[in-house]
Design a binder for these strands. Sequence first.
RNA 1: GUGAUCGUAGCUCAGUUGGUUAGAGCGCCUGUCUGUGGCACAGGAGGUCGGGGGUUCAAUUCCCCUCGGUCACCCCA
Length: 425
Amino acid sequence: MSTKPNSFQTPIGTSDLLPLGSARWQATLQLFDEVSTRSGFGYLSTPIFEDIGVFSRVGEGTDVVRKEMYEFLDKSDRRLALRPEGTAAVCRAFVQHHPVTPWKVYYHGPFFRYEAPQAGRYRQFHQLGIETLGSDDPDADVEVMALAWEMFQKMGLKQVELSLNSMGDGDTRLQYAEALTEYLNQHRDAIDEEDREKISDHPMRVLDSKRRATRKVTDEAPKISDFLSASAIAHFDRVQDGLTALDIPYKVEPRLVRGLDYYTHTTFEFQSKALSAAQNTICGGGRYNGLVEELGGPVTPGIGFGMGIERLLLACDAEEVFPAPKSSLDVWVIDVAGGSHARDITYELRSHGINADRSFDSRSMRSQMRSANRSGAPIALIIGEDEVAAGNVALRSMLDNGVEQILIPRDQIAVEVLRSLGSRS
RNA sequence: GUGAUCGUAGCUCAGUUGGUUAGAGCGCCUGUCUGUGGCACAGGAGGUCGGGGGUUCAAUUCCCCUCGGUCACCCCA
C-alpha cells in the first residue's frame, strides 16, 4: 500500500496470496483437478514464457498480443514473452509432441497482461483451462462447456449465465467482416465517435460496444448467423442440442465475438450476474480450427476454455457461497515441561499421518491453550511435570463445550489420538 | 494508454476549518484463573496519518510530484 524508503511491495497489478485466503484457492484447484480427471482430461504444464512467436503468430490483430504482452530478450537475445493466454501454448505443445488425438488436457497457472489493473483485472492473473485437440465433434464443444458448468455447480454458484454464438467456418468470418464493415461505414455518422476508428481495424469489436449510439446501429446490423454455411449451422445446432440434453441453460448471443481472433464455429462466455463490475466474464472460450496449422502443425481442430480464478472467487464472494475452511490440524501439543516433549510427540504423531502442531517459546499454559483453541484442532495433548512423572499425557477435547479430559499412556499416544479422531467423524 | 477518486495502527474506520502526548472497534500480547481455551474484566504492545519535496513560526490537515488501491473508458480471465 505504501512505499517506505527502504522497503518493497508487490509490483502493480500483482498480489500475495496469504495462508488464510489460499485455502479456497487450493480447494478450487483441487475441484478442477477432480472434475477434469473424471472427464478424461490429463494435466499439462507448459512454460510460463515462450518464444514470442507462439503468441504473436496467433493473435497479431489483438490487443492482448499487440500491446499487453510482457516481452523481453534473454541473455542470448532470444525474444521471449510471458504467456498472456493458454491456448496458443497448448497448441505449440501439440505440434511439438505429436500426441494421439483426441488430445484432452487441462492446465492452470499464472498469466500476464500489461494492462491498467482494477477489480477482477490484474497484470498477473490465474486461469484454469481445458482444451480438446483433434476432434471436430460438436459433442467435444459440449463437453468443454459442460465441464465449466460443472465447476460452477459444484462451487455453488447460481448466478452464472452462458452466452453462445457461432463464428462459422472457413471464409465465413471474412465474408461477415466485409459485410459488417460495409454496413458500419454506411452508418458511420450514427456511430459513437469512440467506436468509429474500430471499424476498419476491428469491425466485429464494434458489436460489443456498450455505447448507446453505436448500439442502435448494431441492433440492425447484419448477423453472422445469416452467413453460416449449412455445415456450420448443423454443427451449431448439434452443440445446442447437446447443451439442452444436459440441462445446461444458455442463450444465443449474436454479438458475442470475443477478443481473440482465432475462433471458428463455437464461441462462448460465462458471466456472473452477481458481479456488478465491468469485469464479469469468469470464463471464455471457443473452437479454433486453424490454430494448430498456424503454428506449423497438421490441420487439427480444437476447442477449449480459460477460466479466471480470481474472478471465479470474486463471484463466490458476491454470492457468498464459500464456507470458511475448517482447520486442517488434528492435534495441538501443549508442553509446560520444557518443550522437548512437544517436539517428540509432534513428530511421532506426524509420522502416523496425524496433522499436529505445537507452541514454541515455552509460553504459559494459558497461552498455549489459546493457540490450541485458535488452531481449530479438535484435540489438545497436554504435558506438564505431573504427566512426565507419571509417564502419561492428558488428552483434552477442544470441541465446543468439551471439558472431557483423559489420561493416556505416553507410549499409546498415536493409537489413542487416532481412536479419538475416529470416534468424532 | 486516458479520465476520476481514495490512501490515518495487522484489519475496518473516526478525527484534525494547520497548533500541546493522533483515537475507536476487532485482532495480537499479558494478567484476574489453584498448570487448562472459547465468555467477562483489567492492563499492554503497535502509527515518522502511503512516500518525497514545498509553503508556514508550526502540517497528518494546504500545494506539487511520486507510489499504490478503486471506478469508468479500453480490454478481457
